[in-house]
Amino acid sequence: MSFLELKDLRIHFPTDDGLVKSVDGLSFALERGKTLGIVGESGSGKSVTSLGILGLHKGGRAKISGEIWLDGEELVSATPEHVRTLRGKKMAMIFQDPLSAMHPYYTVGQQIVEAYRIHHPVGKAVARKHAIDLLGRVGIPQPDRRVDSYPHEFSGGMRQRAMIAMALSCDPELLIADEPTTALDVTVQAQILDLMRDLQQEFDSALIIITHDLGVVAELADDILVMYGGRCIEYGSASDIFERPEHPYTWGLLGSMPRLDRERTDRLMPIKGTPPSLINVPSGCAFHPRCAYEPRTDGKATTKVPDLLETEGGHLVRCHLSKDERRGIWENEIKPTLESA
């Protein structure tokens, strides 16, 4: 069994408007030392998935089913108290907005010390030394002085570094970063991505990076999971997803993005329509109202949910088109337009 394994995870929220199926049958596996990128548009269920793995939906109104195996232990059926003991030590999270994850009235150092001492019975001085070490490791200048600063005294990039230091304080084996650079400027984003890459290699942890930026996952991820409407619609190695994607939604994402590494294209190719509501997910293939290839599936796309099937070597696709049709469309219709000058 892999270090982390999700099996048919479902996280549904009953609301006044109806049942929100935020995560609806998600399965994947991740080993230590590997990075998984989860991409998808707003509301596709990325954050709910990550909070679910950390057990943060437990005890709320969410209905959770399926299995989450972390290092041989199943977490969906575990008690909230037990999962709490794993947070910090075994798994930790880096959020998009460090300010909301840090306490404004405590210094950065106090917060790291606190996090460390929950799991390590050491004195304050030892923990403080550890905090200074960590701040230095994540590239905060003069860590012995900055350890006594408050979060608001840090710039956005420094806060994000401090939060990474906090998340790393107990050497977690699984690190989940939810949009860790979305709020940052591009030059600072590049620094943080470098840092995460280096630290992951050093700690040999499993890393999940959640983002809507395909460029960011291309920088970091070994494997990529594309989510749409609470489900995985394509999964594969980074090369599978960027060089031979087979799902029409993935094609749409690639066509929507202007790219600096290519000649400028005349026109972007947006996906028509808008992302689905998770209360009334479209019948059959959730992408069908927006899909240009729906007519080629003989009406099946509107009635039957396609299965997530392997196309080759661990590359999974959820689409009714046949493998040959998909490859033909990618090679002849999509790829040439993405590369046109």
Partner: peptide, 10 residues
């Protein structure tokens, strides 16, 4: 700035 932009090319 330009060299910091992540590009989707593995």
């Amino acid at each position: 700035l330009l060299s910091a932009v992540p590009v989707p090319d593995v």
